[in-house]
């Protein structure tokens, strides 16, 4: 943990001590920060929602196994990318893990480079996620400045209606609709309807 690169941390959960230790050394050798846990419960105790990074998770473990921890994380809304470590030939288990939201899986015994490639990919994803999350928060703040009537107009515009149709639908004059649209553009700091649609959809996706 001495050689931390940025804020990202690679979490490792494996019951085998040698595996934990060797993976930690390996990650540190490429200047990644790593934290290891012997079991799922240990990880749950120390993990905080805001922490960035990724999780290397062994499927076979005594007590709570890897699959169960994965499901717990996903149902808790934690979008930390998870790389599953599976035994050789456990393809069905790996597929199940992917369906439950794991980012990737790697089969033991593995090449060190393979593990590192997957860890990097996971960290990239985590960074992207974090960036998007901050954008969404920004957009949400912008939209919060809009009045209720202006939100109605935004949704009708995104649905592809013209000003006349919107006026008819809302029972107001087209001129009033145009005023609402001008206000919306200004408040959201955008210049085109296309941008408005993009913003709105991004928020809806999140």
């Amino acid at each position: 943990m001495s050689e931390c690169a940025g804020q990202a941390t690679v979490f490792v959960v494996d019951d085998d001590e040698a595996m934990r230790d060797s993976i930690q050394l390996l990650l540190e050798s490429v200047h990644l920060s790593a934290r290891t846990f012997a079991c799922a419960l240990d990880f749950m105790k120390h993990f905080e929602q805001k922490q960035e990074g990724c999780l290397l998770l062994d499927v076979r473990m005594p007590g709570m196994n890897g699959m169960e921890l994965l499901e717990l994380l996903k149902s808790g809304g934690i979008d930390l990318p998870v790389v599953m470590i599976t035994g050789h030939g456990d393809v069905p288990l790996a597929v199940r893990a992917l369906k439950h939201g794991a980012f990737d899986f790697i089969q033991k015994p593995f090449n060190a480079q393979e593990l590192l490639d997957r860890v990097h990919a996971a960290l990239d994803l985590d960074r992207k996620n974090n960036r998007r999350n901050s954008e969404v928060a920004q957009y949400r703040a912008l939209f919060q400045a809009l009045t209720d009537r202006e939100m109605e107009v935004v949704d009708l515009v995104v649905a592809g209606n013209s000003s006349k149709m919107i006026a008819k639908a809302l029972g107001i004059s087209p001129k009033t609709v145009d005023i609402h649209r001008a206000n919306i553009m200004r408040k959201l700091n955008i210049r085109s309807v296309a941008e408005m649609v993009q913003l709105r959809l991004t928020l809806l996706d999140a």
């Binding site: 390996l26 030939g89 033991k108 015994p109 060190a112």
Partner: peptide
């Protein structure tokens, strides 16, 4: 498969250590 699992642990760990050393 039990045997493979048991063997894969030390082999993987060994591989990791050696890789670290090389790096």
């Amino acid at each position: 498969s039990g045997m493979a699992h048991e063997l894969s642990q030390p082999l993987t760990a060994c591989n990791n250590y050696l890789d670290v050393c090389l790096r």
